[in-house]
Simulated assay, not measured.
Amino acid sequence: MPLAIRTVGLCKRFGSLTALDHLELGVAEGTVHGLLGPNGAGKTTAVRVLSTLIRPDEGTAEVFGVDVRSDPRRVRSIIGLTGQYAAVDELLTGRENLHMIGRLFRLSKPESRARASELLERFDLEDAADRQPRTYSGGTRRRLDVAASLMARPRLIFLDEPTTGLDPRSRMEVWRIVRELVAGGTTVLLTTQYLEEADQLADSLSVIDHGRVIVSGTPDELKAQVGQDRISITLLDAAAVEETVRLLRARLGTEPVVAVPEKMRVHAALGDGGSWLDLPQLLKDSGIAIGDVALRHPTLDDVFLAVTGRSAENGTDQRTTGKGNERP
């Protein structure tokens, strides 16, 4: 498929900090591409480079074949950007905000007013159109912010953690908007820390860490890379972790991991080393008290943990081996 975004060897440094380290990224036209990574992985820096807000130090980045460094004006004419926080003018009404953005994109006054009215209806903002955003809920502000980024009918829109801080109902509204955008032919680059959101919306995903893409694919492809179904055992006594790990390793033939920071839950892939059905009784016979045993299919949480060793939401390391060593 034709690419809406293509980066090769993209680097960006801030002093001694390397935010992007030879980033290689490809996003197909007319799709939602999810960009996942721990805090500080480089997601927002990538969006800022691709949207021409900052210049890269090395490498190339193209949007629909247009180089962001050599022709930023043209790139800005075909993209929209919604940042982590709604960027609306508090002194203007919702309608006036959209009209102002339209005029900045050099739409005529009639065109700007017509486009604003169209978007207010599309995003269910008509009742709030003539009120100032300071009276809006978080979800309503976010809808207005996304509408503003669509005033010039961009071919590509960047959504940088668009649902951070929103309640579940508002988050679902943003999800509906994203689906409508793609159905209309818009390409979406979505950065998010919510793995459920990525699973629901993204046609393809890239997980980045330390400024590099470490794995890419569809959600199903990435889950398949994790491997077998997994068993998760919650212990009532953290002192029993080491013995539990030993027993699981011997019975399943796979290397268990221990969740951090609580260190009360042990995860293991179901290998070919034996049945898991008698594990609860085996642990009980060994004097290990368990609170819960769950069997589940691989999820994006498992993918994220496997490739980064960190939590998607807080960026802290989330796994150790039974021997207490961090896994790379």
Score class of each variant (00 low, 15 high):
I5N: 07
I5F: 10
I5Y: 02
I5R: 01
R6S: 14
V8D: 15
C11A: 11
C11L: 03
K12R: 15
R13Q: 14
R13H: 15
R13F: 13
F14I: 14
F14A: 11
F14Q: 08
G15I: 11
S16W: 04
T18R: 13
A19L: 15
A19Y: 11
A19V: 12
L20Y: 06
D21M: 06
D21C: 11
D21F: 08
H22C: 09
H22F: 05
L23N: 10
E24H: 08
E24W: 01
L25W: 01
L25A: 03
G26C: 09
G26D: 15
G26Y: 02
G26F: 01
A28T: 07
E29I: 04
G30Q: 00
T31S: 08
T31Y: 03
V32W: 01
V32G: 00
H33Y: 08
H33Q: 06
G34V: 04
L35I: 10
L35T: 05
L36N: 00
L36P: 00
L36D: 00
L36S: 03
G37D: 01
G37C: 01
P38S: 02
N39T: 02
N39M: 07
N39E: 00
G40L: 05
G40R: 04
G40P: 03
A41T: 08
A41C: 11
A41G: 10
A41M: 12
A41I: 08
G42R: 05
G42P: 03
G42K: 06
K43P: 04
T44Q: 08
T44D: 00
T45I: 09
T45G: 01
A46R: 05
A46W: 01
V47D: 10
R48M: 13
R48C: 00
R48G: 01
R48A: 05
V49L: 04
V49K: 02
L50E: 04
L50H: 01
L50S: 02
L50G: 01
S51V: 05
S51R: 03
S51Q: 04
S51T: 04
T52H: 07
T52M: 07
T52Q: 02
T52A: 02
T52K: 05
I54G: 02
R55T: 13
R55Q: 14
R55L: 12
P56A: 14
D57I: 14
D57G: 15
D57F: 13
D57R: 12
D57L: 12
G59H: 10
T60F: 11
T60D: 11
A61H: 07
A61P: 03
A61V: 10
A61R: 03
E62A: 11
E62C: 13
V63Q: 06
G65V: 11
G65I: 11
G65S: 02
V66N: 13
V66G: 11
V66F: 12
D67M: 06
V68D: 04
V68N: 02
V68W: 09
S70I: 09
D71W: 05
P72Q: 07
P72K: 00
R73H: 07
R74I: 10
S77C: 13
S77N: 12
I78L: 14
I79K: 08
I79V: 15
